[in-house]
Design a protein around this nucleic acid. Structure first.
Lengths: 165, 165
DNA sequence: ACGGGTCGGTTCATTGAATGAACTGACCGT
DNA sequence: ACGGTCAGTTCATTCAATGAACCGACCCGT
């Protein structure tokens, strides 16, 4: 964004949220974090954004308490993990309306194997499923990128499980 | 955002969604649309963004089928109204973590008067409440802007009800 | 019919963020 | 000591955001 990333004068919770996660690339960085990406070079290779931007975004997210830096790994905090339902809803909306080829990944509740509904709830258990209890399953037959992250995400994975052992 | 608003090469529904609603100001414009704002000058006065940016965003949203232009009014389409739960969740997240003074507005289910939970569901009826069935109630004692929209939003309103009669 | 005001934009120069390539320095394994 | 990877920083270039000025259509009162 250009010229001031803030939304001064808006007495509105949405404006506060967008000042943190509303900049270009930020929500995609967080999506990767939910997929288990933790290292600078992995974000870089998978998202293809400029290094300077990634560095700046990670720093801002750590300052906002959304990510925490442990050594050279960035991990979602509780505050960050609470974004999962909103992120999931937004992604399902994009999928319904703008993904010509249908979903590229589906999400299910680990406990019961039921596919989540668009709101992020488990239809059989009821209620929003936290990310630790969600498994992501790639839809087969999709092109797979040639970076290590894309290859790792071609296998089913539980959210938040680190990509590297 | 600068240099390409798209996220090429991401086979991801979230990237598709962000190409539509991920640019600066866009989600705030849509929030105002849920509050009943429909006219160019009302968006302008309430958000305080440059006219050129508002014009460009409204045009893009119409092209994407999120808004529809009727005469000189912009209205949410069904596709646009489906964004409500995601928008609400993001706003509640911002409110929990970054609104020092607590909520400035609260939201209740018109049918039963119950306050919505953070996921946008009605605790007593169960299930996500569509925006037509949500009433917004401003919290008293807040500073009110001096534009017509801010004054109108200082009264309780049902979402999507046009601001002007 | 004319003049003034509002509305819904477009045009334009300036500013600053995003981009991408090059560079730096720490750490590792051999 | 050497080469390679990793995690950034620096820097020139490009392009979107900003804000002010401008423009035409429409309405209203005279």
């Amino acid at each position: 964004m250009a010229l001031g990333k803030d939304y001064r004068g808006q007495d509105c919770a949405l404006a506060r949220a967008l000042e943190i996660v509303g900049e270009r690339w930020t929500l995609l960085i967080l999506r990767d974090a939910f997929y288990g990406v933790r290292r600078f070079s992995d974000f870089l290779a998978h998202l293809g954004l400029p290094r300077a931007v990634l560095s700046s975004r990670l720093q801002a997210l750590v300052e906002a308490g959304v990510l925490a830096k442990h050594g050279c790994e960035y991990e979602l905090t509780e505050r960050g993990r609470e974004l999962w339902p909103a992120l999931h809803m937004l992604a399902r909306w994009g999928e319904r309306h703008f993904s010509a080829d249908g979903p590229s990944r589906v999400f299910e509740h680990v406990a019961c194997g039921t596919r989540l509904d668009p709101s992020g709830s488990c239809p059989s258990c009821g209620g929003i499923v936290p990310p630790e209890e969600v498994r992501m399953l790639p839809v087969p037959g999709r092109p797979v990128g040639d970076d290590p992250v894309s290859r790792a995400l071609a296998e089913p994975r539980r959210l938040l499980d680190p990509l590297r052992p």
